[in-house]
């Protein structure tokens, strides 16, 4: 088996091939005009997708029924509370970050408590808790849009050698996530639980400890994303998390992680996040109407997933 063939058996390759293909198609259509700007925008927005998708990937890998639907509400709550606390003051930036992370961790702990103590299926537990968190966000800021501290806003749009700074940082985060998944006791435990939770317990994996850590980590990453996204878009909006509900799941699945659990990879998250953003950009560039755009988005996603599962996955 040659190295070239081997790479086509990687589950994440199809998301990357898709991303490159739609970018090339867009660039060809515009005859190269704006191609680098599109790429730069894709990296910034892709970075936000990857932050939440990283947490969602670990949750989904825990096995059938595990998914976190409270990500949008958690992002909104963390974003609004952090923005209001900082109130535009640059000195409060670290405090705001800590508050956003703490809110995320709290949301995750509540989600896990509902799942564990009340034995509610995760999909229901996180959906119902998300209504509470969303209402808390509405109550907290009463519809006001507080501007972020200026240095923080600048930070989220800064570029180094043309590459968005935030994308570079999220790449480092992704590498850490990859190491966490493949090289630590925690990561092995998550993958074992996703394949067979009873066998994992009987093999000595600390099942409940790992499940708790996973839900808390996922919500903490959502809190971080809410904080950065509010800073990026000039303040927290109540609907800012909306599109992150389905995209966080789509990015995980397109990236080659098994929806059935027990099988995950991190490189695919970046490929899929870039692919999703570039796909919408391409259809916009082509001047497709809203209806055509949604239909094509759906069909192309199906195509990538079919290609990916034909590559390597057995079940």
């Amino acid at each position: 088996m040659t190295g070239v063939l081997h790479i086509f058996r990687q589950p994440w390759i199809w998301a990357w091939i898709g991303a490159v293909a739609v970018w090339l198609a867009t660039a060809t259509f515009t005859q190269g005009r704006g191609a680098t700007e599109v790429l730069s925008a894709a990296m910034t927005f892709g970075a936000f997708f990857v932050i939440v998708a990283l947490g969602q990937m670990f949750v989904i890998t825990l096995g059938p029924g595990n998914v976190d639907l409270s990500i949008p509400a958690c992002m909104t709550l963390a974003g609004t509370v952090a923005m209001k606390t900082m109130d535009g003051s640059a000195g409060m930036i670290p405090v705001g970050l800590l508050i956003a992370l703490a809110i995320g961790a709290g949301v995750g702990a509540i989600n896990y408590a509902l799942i564990r103590m009340l034995r509610i299926p995760p999909i229901i537990a996180t959906l119902s808790s998300s209504f509470i968190f969303q209402s808390a966000a509405i109550w907290w800021n009463r519809g006001l849009r507080v501007k972020p501290p200026e240095p923080l806003g600048d930070f989220t749009t800064a570029k180094i050698a043309g590459v968005p700074l935030i994308a570079l940082l999220v790449m480092i985060l992704a590498v850490a996530g990859h190491v966490l998944l493949t090289r630590t006791m925690y990561g092995r435990g998550v993958v074992a639980i996703g394949q067979n939770i009873r066998a994992a317990h009987l093999a000595g994996v600390k099942v409940e400890r790992i499940r708790a850590a996973t839900y808390i980590m996922c919500a903490t990453l959502a809190g971080l994303c809410g904080y950065l996204l509010s800073a990026f878009s000039g303040g927290a909006a109540l609907n800012m998390g909306e599109e992150y509900l389905l995209s966080s799941i789509a990015v995980v699945v397109i990236g080659g992680t098994s929806v059935a659990g027990g099988f995950a990879n991190v490189p695919g998250l970046w490929g899929a996040a870039l692919f999703l953003f570039l796909l919408v950009t391409m259809l916009n560039t082509f001047g497709a109407g809203a209806g055509v755009r949604l239909v094509l988005t759906g069909l192309i996603i199906i195509g990538v997933i079919v290609a990916a599962s034909g590559g390597k996955r057995r079940t």
């Binding site: 067979n196 009873r198 093999a203």
Partner: peptide
């Protein structure tokens, strides 16, 4: 199958 093997590993 139920208690032991991790089938994807």
């Amino acid at each position: 199958q139920t208690d032991g093997v991790f089938p994807l590993w």
